[in-house]
Design a protein around this nucleic acid. Structure first.
Lengths: 105, 105
DNA sequence: CGATTATATCAATATTTTTTGATATAATCA
DNA sequence: TGATTATATCAAAAAATATTGATATAATCG
């Protein structure tokens, strides 16, 4: 199920942290941009995450791919950078499904 | 963090399914019992889960231990059986923490 | 254009998680 | 009591994930 895959994405402390960073991201090391929804400035690029978490580049790339694959994160290439945005809609869907599956509230 | 550990518990399709079964459990293969909160009949024993999911006993044991360790499931030994109950409070805590961490709603 | 910078991917390794079968414990039943 | 039944645990194997370093791609900068 979709929720299992998302739980799996959230089950790594690094990815969980990155998601929180994205949610809270304002502008970054990289040039300030708007996302496609016109909100501005939001998003983080790989390099920012690397620096923030002191991780090597391929490791960041790997985890971002995992996150993007679940839909929890959207990406937007911009010049030589790639920006990432938290997808709140998807997060909410996850929570709502949990509530349904586990009879909450 | 606690939420990472819980996500990890939810990230296995079998455990996710068992949780749903527990939430929906009424009475079972084993004698009908009440849980310590006096609600009755609820809970499932190992054997029920084994049969339902066609899993060997040690595998069920392993997954139940994982679930109990997160607090998502409570256990109650009763004679030679062990009954399991979904802990809705813990599930709600998880959801609430998600909302806070990811700025939902 | 060539050099630099950002990111992706790949193969090898390491680590973690899951599964199995065997054995242990402990309660009930006859 | 001994036999049976339910569950736990353990060691080994299998499978899945994560990490690293190397190399590839592709955009920008001078």
């Amino acid at each position: 199920m979709d929720n299992v895959k998302i739980s799996q994405a959230l089950s790594d402390p690094i990815r969980y942290k990155i998601l929180m960073m994205l949610v809270r991201s304002d502008n970054a090391c990289c040039p300030v941009i708007s996302n496609s929804a016109g909100e501005s400035p939001v998003g983080l690029c790989n390099c920012e995450i690397m620096n923030e978490l002191s991780m090597i580049q391929s490791r960041v790339s790997y985890h971002m791919k995992e996150l993007v694959e679940t839909g929890l994160v959207n990406e937007e290439p911009r010049g030589k950078w790639k920006y990432y945005f938290a997808n709140s809609k998807k997060m909410l869907d996850y929570v709502d499904q949990l509530k349904r599956d586990f009879n909450l509230e």
